[in-house]
Structures are given as structure tokens and as C-alpha cells.
């Protein structure tokens, strides 16, 4: 038990040191990289490791007779969660969201320290001690609090009231509802019934099961499946169209959506909204192929207002590409990310 707890304590100390390093900018916050797509799981497991670490720490302190008062445990844990959210997570979470998490974690800590009568007593004892000020130390502490609290609250309200020039927060819908049909190059496509004419098997029939077998493999790197090289001279049908789509992608789209389709192309840093990250499971993996067709063909300017058509630099690709080229690019995007287009059923 003790050995286990010691390991826990060690993990806790290491983790804390790292977080403190990040807060003071000594340790870069990307030391342990947050991997795209796995971030929520990673954050949860990191927090779990921290909790285990803290349990170990408090157990060890207890057994060494240096028990940590329950009050400070509560306060420190809450502070820790706040620091973790602020300094570990990237891209940064806005203050308003962190405040929400702050309240939730406050309630959680409160429930923890007030779980039973004895714990609750232990928790509030230090507070009462200061209020009663029976010893000289507590008296000094109480005087300090009496002066500090009004000053802090006054200062805080001054800072909030001072006119600031923060960026206004504007919420944009990334995937707005599509229209029922869209007209591209003179032809009307009903989104529910249209199909990618290049997602075909060797007989030339629309066959998603066939193409699904040839997309890149999921997992780190997302490499092409063995024997499914679009650059093979003998590649025909679906794989040949994938290559043609890739050529169009790397002549037109990668400038923003990036060489790995992760939305980090050459020009991406300048634009807001940022280009979509197709490797994120929340973009093309969640959408039907015809939805993508509509978005690609009509571009940013064709979005409904909730998609901020005035700010998006996504070209209406019908101005640059033929319908066939658009379908091929879409084919390539699914191939390269290893996702299946969602189907209507």
C-alpha cells in the first residue's frame, strides 16, 4: 500500500512541478503534446493521474505525521484545477468558460469537504479559528483579511469596470444546415440523393464499401493501406481518381487546409475563421459527402448568416473548378484522412 502511494506521490510531485514550470514559462506547455482528436481523453486521464498523485501525497504526508488540513486540501485542489485549465490547455479556453468550470469544480470540492459532519467540521475549523482570533497569530491573520478583502474586491471591480479593448466574442456555426438542393454549373443537385460519381468500384458502380477498403489506415500517421497506392501506375478507378483529386487539392486547397489536411496551411495563420481541420473527427467525418459538395462549390460567400459568410475566405470553388474536379477533391479528402462520408440512413 505504502509503496503504491509513494509512486502516486512521486507522480503527483512530478506533475505539479511540470505544471508550475508551465505557469512560469520554464517548461513549454507543449512538452507533453496534446494530440488532436484525443485531447478530451488525454485531459481526463491527465487529471486522473493528478488526482491519484494527490491521493498518494496526502497519504504519505499523513503517515509521516504531517497531515495536510482538509481546508487547505480543498482550496489547493480548486486552485490546481484552475491553473491546469489556464496553463495546460491549448488553444486557451476563454475566461467565461473557465469561470463556469471554476464554479463546477467549486461545487465539487464543496461536496467533497462537506460529505459528512466530521469532514465538514474539519473543513470549517480554520475559518472559525480566524474569525474568533483566539491566538495572536489568528488575530494578525484576521486583521490582514479584514483589510485585504475589501481592497481586493474593490480592485477587482475597478479592473472589470475599466473600459477594456478585449476582442468581442462572436460565436459562429461551423456546420450550418445545408439547403435541400444546390445548383452548380447549371445543374441542380439534390443533396439527399446525389452521389459522388467517382466513388465507384472496378465495375464503375457507386460502392462505398469498396472505397472504404482503400482509404488510408487510421492511427498515427494515417498511411495508405498496403497495395492501395494512388501513385501506382496501375492504379485505376477509385484510386486513380483519388490521385487526381489530390493533385487538385495540392494546387488549390493546401494553401489554407494544409499539407496534412489539418487546417494549417501557408496562409491559415492570417485568417479568421480558421480553415477547417479535416483530420478532426468533428468535420468531414460527421458530414455527408453532398454537404461537402455544397460547401466546396458555394464557399464562404454561400454560407447562411450563422456561418459568417462575410468573414470566410473559402472560395466558391465553382468559380475555379469543374463539378468533376470538386467531386474528386472530396474523394481525396476522405481518402487522405481515412474517414468515411456519413450516409443519409
Amino acid at each position: 500500500m505504502k509503496a503504491l502511494m509513494s509512486v502516486g506521490a512521486l507522480v503527483g510531485v512530478l506533475g505539479l512541478l511540470m505544471l508550475i514550470g508551465m505557469i512560469f514559462g520554464v517548461v513549454p506547455s507543449n512538452t507533453v503534446r496534446l494530440v488532436e482528436g484525443y485531447m478530451p481523453m488525454q485531459v481526463l486521464s491527465e487529471l486522473a493521474v493528478f488526482v491519484a498523485g494527490f491521493t498518494g501525497l496526502s497519504y504519505l504526508a499523513n503517515s509521516m505525521g504531517m497531515a495536510f488540513p482538509r481546508f487547505w486540501q480543498g482550496v489547493l485542489f480548486w486552485t490546481f484545477v484552475q491553473m491546469y485549465l489556464k496553463f495546460r490547455i491549448y488553444p486557451p479556453i476563454p475566461f467565461s468558460v473557465r469561470a463556469m468550470y471554476g464554479v463546477v469544480s467549486f461545487v465539487a470540492v464543496f461536496m467533497w469537504v462537506s460529505a459528512n459532519e466530521e469532514d465538514w467540521k474539519k473543513f470549517r475549523q480554520p475559518i472559525l479559528n480566524v474569525l474568533d482570533a483566539n491566538t495572536g497569530f489568528h488575530k494578525a491573520l484576521r486583521t490582514m483579511y479584514l483589510i485585504l478583502v475589501p481592497l481586493l474586491i474593490g480592485g477587482f471591480s475597478f479592473v472589470t469596470m475599466k473600459p477594456s479593448v478585449d476582442e468581442p466574442i462572436e460565436l459562429r456555426t461551423v456546420h450550418p444546415a445545408p439547403p435541400a438542393s444546390t445548383k452548380v454549373h447549371g445543374k441542380t443537385y439534390t443533396l439527399q440523393t446525389s452521389q459522388n460519381p467517382y466513388r465507384v468500384n472496378l465495375e464503375g458502380k457507386y460502392d462505398q464499401a469498396y472505397s472504404n477498403k482503400l482509404i488510408v489506415e487510421q492511427g498515427m500517421g494515417r498511411l495508405m493501406a498496403p497495395n492501395a497506392n494512388p501513385w501506382d501506375e496501375k492504379a485505376e478507378g477509385y484510386l486513380k481518381y483519388v490521385r487526381e483529386g489530390g493533385e487538385i487539392f495540392f494546387q488549390n486547397c493546401h494553401f489554407c487546409h494544409g499539407d496534412n489536411l489539418n487546417g494549417r496551411g501557408l496562409h491559415a495563420f492570417a485568417f479568421n475563421p480558421i480553415p477547417a481541420n479535416f483530420t478532426d473527427p468533428g468535420t468531414i467525418a460527421q458530414l455527408q459527402e453532398t454537404f461537402i459538395f455544397w460547401r466546396v462549390a458555394k464557399g464562404g460567400i454561400g454560407l447562411p448568416n450563422e456561418g459568417f459568410p462575410w468573414a470566410s475566405v473559402m472560395p466558391p470553388w465553382e468559380q475555379h473548378l469543374t463539378t468533376d474536379e470538386i467531386w474528386k477533391v472530396i474523394l481525396f479528402e476522405y481518402w487522405h484522412t481515412g474517414y468515411y462520408p456519413r450516409t443519409w440512413d
Partner: peptide
Amino acid sequence: AMGGQITHKPRNFVN
């Protein structure tokens, strides 16, 4: 930050 105007023709791939 400035990016190339890549929305409408003539697009500017190198700014």
C-alpha cells in the same frame, strides 16, 4: 497577419 487573397480570381498564391 496578411494572407494571400485566394478566394476569387486572380488568386495570389504567393503574397
